[in-house]
């Protein structure tokens, strides 16, 4: 009996210990974000660095985003058509495809792909910098690695994500149009006309972009933090990279719900 109580107490303690650890990590990550952003605007670490990071984070994610966007749009066109034609309202296909993409799939899928493509690369890059003592070397030169390494990457993610999400949705809408109009015979005027009648510039497009701004910041934040906090061994870096993708994806999905709730509530 006593043993059982002991065991229960042990597991409660383990739980408490684990939550304290989590909480501590969260606090460290928060301080980390604040101190990197405190270094100021996007150009504070040199404009060249920012351009370089936008290139490796944003431009190099472009191909995967565009291909994925086109396919997602085509699938939406196909599925939407089958569902809508049951109600005889194929004309609403454009509305359905565009609203789905602009409000949800664009920002969310882009953020998930971004976490896999750019986030993991960021973590691995920074983890390796740590393992090869580049970060220590920078500190010993009297250069703050937060300012030189982290800040430009954070800003690059913040800037790239909305652009990527926008292009994803755009390509997706054209993908839906391609399937709907050219393959399934939805009236072209109805597709675009109904879309234009129901899509609101502020409510749908801008709010979608706000979502992806938040996702951009959060995903890059998680990625650079995981890299910076990783144990500088091959095992530690591989673990940190996995963590980045898992944590960032979950964070995006969770935040998406919160943001959607706030945005719908404010209408």
């Amino acid at each position: 009996m006593l043993k059982l109580i002991d065991k229960i107490l042990d597991s409660i303690q383990a739980l408490g210990n684990a939550s304290l650890g989590r909480l501590q990590a969260l606090g460290r990550a928060g301080v980390f974000l604040l101190s990197s952003l405190m270094w100021g605007g996007p150009g504070s670490a040199g404009f060249g660095d920012l351009v370089k990071q936008i290139y490796s984070i944003g431009v190099r994610s472009l191909s995967i985003i565009i291909v994925a966007g086109f396919f997602v749009g085509m699938v939406l066109g196909l599925q939407g058509y089958t569902i809508l034609s049951d109600f005889g309202s194929e004309a609403a296909l454009g509305t359905m495809v565009s609203l789905t993409l602009l409000r949800e799939l664009g920002p969310v899928v882009t953020a998930l792909l971004f976490a896999g493509r750019a986030g993991s690369a960021l973590t691995a890059e920074i983890g390796l910098m740590k393992a090869t003592e580049q970060i220590s070397a920078m500190e010993m030169m009297g250069v703050d690695p937060l300012k030189r390494i982290i800040t430009p990457r954070l800003w690059a993610g913040f800037i790239s994500m909305p652009i990527l999400a926008l292009l994803f949705s755009l390509v997706g809408i054209w993908g839906g149009a391609y399937v709907g109009i050219n393959m399934l015979g939805v009236d072209e005027g109805a597709y675009w006309g109904n879309m234009q009648a129901s899509v609101e510039f502020y409510d749908d497009i801008i709010k979608g972009l706000i979502k992806s701004l938040v996702f951009g910041l959060v995903v890059t934040w998680i990625a650079v933090y995981q890299g910076f906090d990783s144990i500088p061994t091959s095992e530690g870096i591989s673990k940190a990279t996995t963590q980045t993708v898992v944590v960032a994806s979950l964070a995006v999905l969770g935040l998406d719900f919160v943001l959607t709730a706030i945005m719908l509530g404010s209408i």
Binding site: L102, I163, L166, L170, M195, Q196, V199, F201, I205
Partner: peptide, 12 residues
């Protein structure tokens, strides 16, 4: 992209 979105998709 944003301009196209505004004009073509939201009909602004």
């Amino acid at each position: 992209g944003l301009i196209v979105m505004a004009l073509r998709v939201s009909g602004l």
